[in-house]
Every structure is written in structure tokens, then in C-alpha cells.
Design a binder for these strands. Sequence first.
DNA 1: CTGAAAGCGCTTACAG
DNA 2: CTGAAAGCGCTTACAG
Lengths: 334, 334
Amino acid sequence: MQAKISTLEQVAREAGVSPSTVSRILNGTAAVKDSKREAVERAINKLNYQPNRVAQALASGRSMTIGVLTQNIASPFYGECLEGVEKGLAGTGYTPIFANGHWDAKEEAHRIALLASRQVDGLIVLTGGMLDEALVHQAARIPVVVTGRQLDAANVYSFWLDDRAAAREATAYLISLGHHQIAHICGAPGHPDSEERQAGYKDALAAAGIAIDPRLIVQGEYSEVSGVVAVSQLLSDRIPFTAIFAANDQMALGARLGLYQRGIRVPEDVSLVGFDDLPYSSYMAPPLTTVRQPAFEIGMAAAQTLVSVLSGQTPQRPDLRLELITRDSTRRLR
Amino acid sequence: MQAKISTLEQVAREAGVSPSTVSRILNGTAAVKDSKREAVERAINKLNYQPNRVAQALASGRSMTIGVLTQNIASPFYGECLEGVEKGLAGTGYTPIFANGHWDAKEEAHRIALLASRQVDGLIVLTGGMLDEALVHQAARIPVVVTGRQLDAANVYSFWLDDRAAAREATAYLISLGHHQIAHICGAPGHPDSEERQAGYKDALAAAGIAIDPRLIVQGEYSEVSGVVAVSQLLSDRIPFTAIFAANDQMALGARLGLYQRGIRVPEDVSLVGFDDLPYSSYMAPPLTTVRQPAFEIGMAAAQTLVSVLSGQTPQRPDLRLELITRDSTRRLR
DNA sequence: CTGAAAGCGCTTACAG
DNA sequence: CTGAAAGCGCTTACAG
């Protein structure tokens, strides 16, 4: 182990060959006589040579780096996605560079510009509020994979899941259990997925011929607190309900606490359904019935798609779908 | 908006100055006549010029990039840390590059080598099982901040929190509530913090004159499942206990589910204490009594320390401490 | 199969 | 205050 940094040129000198040859051996870019190859390998080991990726990037025009724009790295949902991205990139030579948009369009644009200035070879945008145009703009230079929206444009690959249908299914499940007074805690206003989920909720009620009671629809913003608050509001308004469909698991967790604090049991008194299937949701007491989002798989598919595009292949469409997972937080109304 | 990439040389030509001058203006590296500055700024806007950071890195020898080695980006604890790192780096010009060690020493070494080859200007190691020597080795080239251990060496800055004392305090709290039969669910074997927490648990019992019953100490490995399993084991072995101290919140969550499934109430029948204070812990039903780790603050302090070292300043020691947070999962034994 | 040379897009002494 | 020139550590046509 030595801390000294050595360069390709030093390796070449040590091995008695030209820098070009060392480069070729490193990159497997051309056949090289065995005797030279061995000499070079010996020199590499002796000098403990590690190629400087920054120099490689500048010379080759490929940074072997992928920009990943997420909104909040600490959120359990994005955490799963990022694990998937990491997995999908493992062994490909590409390193992910993560950036957080914090649900702010300006911040997102700023982060993307930074990623671009770092010469990322491709971009993965996990949802995000930026305009389609901004994405298309980036796609003029590098391939872009975006989740959470449908976008048909050159060099952009979008994955979209049908939140509305899944929300409809989740709500229909509650209805099938005999619930008619179903409250909905909405996601953050303005987020497309939050609108979709609400629409799915309404679809299911309409399909069952249940009138939509606007007092049962309360605003949340995807955080745990907002779930607690929503339940307080529902309860203090004395709107009767026997079930809650929360637009994500974090709010379902908050709602569950709000109910608990008032001695309202789940599922005995109120059935509860979430959306996401976060890692902790199956460990809630009771385990939460929810719509599973394949977060890990989404991240992995995004990474794989980008890598195959970058290697000149045609990526295959991943099979990603939302799935209702029934657990113990829901029960038949008696 | 245009996708074309322009270079500093093009800007220079457009503005009728030399590349050196453009560079100086960009970096505020020397005074420049106002007329030229304006011409350059106009050219930059016209060409929508963004400096190529890769080229800057190669030329200047500073990549403006910080390597952050964590174990598992998707874990709620590391997620918080990383948010803190991001916050601490915001506005400094440094970009974090995250890498996961997955609790594997070889993988860690590999990741660090990769970060080094990408010419990171500094390294943040969030816990991790690598040897002190490996860290010291890195510190020969770039400053290193490491958490979760004490390490006195040149160019390394270590943050260490007293897990043992905090675990002792948590256990003592249960004792003060009248509990004598306190089970402990250990963290992953071999992890220093897991040993420390167990030692603290034993310290508290010893200090209270309570004999240590090895049957009450069950192995976990920091995951939720391992908490469920630990409770099953305790229960099937019919070891009587009135409280559980889990070495982290994830296992406490699992334990809580295990108890719930058997109709054992928290805190009425069993008091439960965790360690970490994850974002979700205060939303458990009941909210969890736990030891708060300042994860965000740790990440932020690590970043700030590194930045101040990199700018030639002497970093000030952050005031980081563990704190017992009492909530509703514990109650006096009757 | 291999080397000399140019070039990637910047920064930074060196001179003036 | 400003420019010409060298250099950062690689890759990659171009020639042979």
C-alpha cells in the first residue's frame, strides 16, 4: 500500500513501452503482444497504478457517470429507488451521481445543470416537477430516463405506472369489504401522482354508485404529520367513516397514530390502506394493506435502460406494475 | 435554451479576449477591466456557456467532489446522514459522490478506490468496517472524516458518540420505571456499535445490582425481521420479561409487531425502547421511546469539517450527542 | 502490433 | 490588467 499517485506515463516508462500501449492494455482496445502486456501488468502492480478517471473522461468524452435526480434522498421511497439504480449500474463501469431537487422546479433545473457540467453520460430523473421541455432539452445531448410520466421524445425513455387504476383498485377493495364511508387523505397538491390517486379513489366510488362526499376528502402532503393532521380534522369535523385510503404509506402511518391516540382501533374500528409499500409498512402493527410500488425495480430498470442505450442497444421495456397487497389493516365491515 | 455545448475558447473568441481572461473572470482569480468583464459576460450568456467541470478538475487538480462512503443508502439512518451531508455541502461548490459498502470490507475498499480514481478532494466515511489503516492510508492524500470511531491520525477527523453510555442510560430508564426483567435484542454481531450498546445494557443492570440473565439477551442483526424473530424466540423460550431494549429502532419496530401479533400490548404489558430515533419512530403506535442519534447533524458536521479543512481552516469540533427521548412505548411497571 | 503526436477543455505560472 | 504557452493525464486517429 502506497499513497503516491502514479500516472500512465510512469507505467509506460517502467514497462519500457509507449503510453499508447499502456492505454490499449487498460482498455482492451487493441491486441498487444503478450510480452509487453506482462511487462505492463507488472509495472501497474509495482506502481499500484490506478487510472485517473477525470483524465479519462476528458480525453474520451465519456465520464462513465450517470446523473440521478431525485427529490429527497432521505425519503424511504427514493432510498429504495436509488438502491435499485445502484444495483442496475453495478459492474457496468458507470458511477451514479445523486442530486436532490427537493420538490422545487428551480432547484431541479439547477441540479441538472450541475450534473451536465460534470459531463454525466446519461440522466435518470425520478419523478420530479420539471417540465417535459427541460427533459427534451437535456435529451438533445444525452439519453434521459424519466419515471412518473409519459413522454414520447427522441432519446428519452419514460416509465409510467397507472396510479389511478391502482388507487381505484385499492378503494374498490375497501368497498368490496362493505365500506361505503371511505375517507381519502390526498397527497401533496400539484403532484400529478397525488391527483391520479385521488381520481382513482373517485372512480371506484362512482363505479360502485357511492356518492362522493367532499368532506371525506382531506388534504395531506405526503408526510407522516399530514396524516395525523388529516385524521384530527376528520374526527373533529365528526364526519363518520369506516375506512381510510391514504395516498401514501407515510400518511397512512401518521393516520394510524392519530387513530391510536384516540383509541380507535385498526382494523376493528377503521380499515386503513396506504400506497407505496415502504420497507416499514409490512412491520406496522397491524401490517398495512397498501399498493406496492416496485421502487427498487423502477430504479434498476431505469439504470439498465440507460446503460443499454449508452451501449448502443435498444432497451427492452421493463414490466413494472402496481399491485395491491392486502394485509391486516383492513377488514370486512360488520 | 440550446443544447449545443460551448467552450471557454469560444467564449473568449466571441468576447475578443484571451482564454486566460475568461478563466480569471469565471474564477474571480484576478482583477479584470470592467469593459472586458462585460464583454465576457455577454458572450457567456449568448453562448449559454457552462464550464466543463471535468476539464477544470484535470487542470486545477481539484475535482470539487467529495466521496461519501455509506453502508446502505436505503437505510433510514444513512438517509438522514446523507441529507445532512448534502446540506453541509450546499453552496460550497462541492458535490457529494455517494458509494455503498454494504457492510462488506472488501466492497468498501473497492468503493474507496473508485472514489479515489475519480479524484475526490476529500472523503467522508460513515461508520463502516474498514480498518483504521485503510483510512490513514487515504488520509495521506486527502482529508478524511470518519464517524463511529475514534481515530487520532494526521489528516483524519473522527466523530465518535458514546453509544455505551447512551445504552446504559436507556436501560437505566427502564430500571427506574421498575423493570428488572429487561430483554436486549442485540445489533449485528461484529459491529462495534452493537457491542457498545450491549455493554451499556449490562452496565446499567450491574449498576442496579440486577443479575444478567443471558437468556434475555438475544441476537438480532439490525433489521426489522430480526426484531420479530427475537421476540418469537424470547416468547417460545418462555423467558419472562417486562421490557425490551432493542439495539436499534428497526428491530424495535419488528419487536413491536411480534408482540402485537401475540396480543401483547405496548406499553401495558411490555415496555419497549429502541436506538436511533428514525424519522418514523415518533409515528409508531405508540410512539417509541428511544435514543436519538443526530444523524442529520452528523452528516452535516462531517461535511462542514471537510470543507473547512479543504479551505485551509481548522475545523471546530461539533457538539454531537446522544439523547434519550422518552415517549409512550414505556411505562412504569405495576 | 506499436509509437509519436495531437487533442480533450480547462488553469496557471511566466512575462510584460 | 492581459496574453501566449505549457501542462493536467489520459485517448485515439494516423502511420508504419
